[in-house]
């Protein structure tokens, strides 16, 4: 009795099958390219650009005013506490850096855990 191992699939054959698969994928995707795509006219694109620029300008204005209002609110609170309630002012000055340090460290360690 003679034991015969069947020819092992070599790299060349593997590559050939890969190339066949790639070719079939390319064939399928090229069919998508033959699909007619409706392209709007130039005026549509122009008004889209104008609207988009207007929207981003409005968004920037809104965000900036929100930032200024919050900043004013915080600053006035600090100034009032400094003159009227110095104890509260000192407590805020101590709590703030502690909170920032705690928040930074905890978010950093969370990121490290996710990446592990």
């Amino acid at each position: 009795m003679k034991k015969q191992k069947v020819v092992i699939l070599d790299n060349e054959q593997q590559n050939k099958h890969d190339l066949d698969a790639i070719h079939k994928v390319q064939e399928g995707l090229s069919k998508v390219d033959q699909f007619p795509v409706y392209t709007p006219d130039l005026q549509w694109f122009e008004s889209m650009v104008r609207n988009e620029k207007e929207n981003s300008r409005k968004k920037l204005r809104k965000e900036l005013s929100l930032f200024l209002i919050i900043a004013l609110f915080i600053l006035s609170g600090i100034i009032v506490s400094f003159y009227q309630l110095p104890v509260v002012f000192i407590v805020i000055q101590i709590i703030t850096p502690v909170f920032i340090a705690y928040y930074t460290i905890s978010s950093f360690s969370r990121k490290v855990k996710i990446n592990e």
Binding site: L9, D20, A21, K24, V25
Partner: peptide, 26 residues
Amino acid sequence: GILAVRRELKLGEETEGRHTRQRTTK
């Protein structure tokens, strides 16, 4: 991804099947 496409299209399945099995003949 290409391997998965090959499996889905059943490309080279015969030869791969032969590769995994060993046949004994007289």
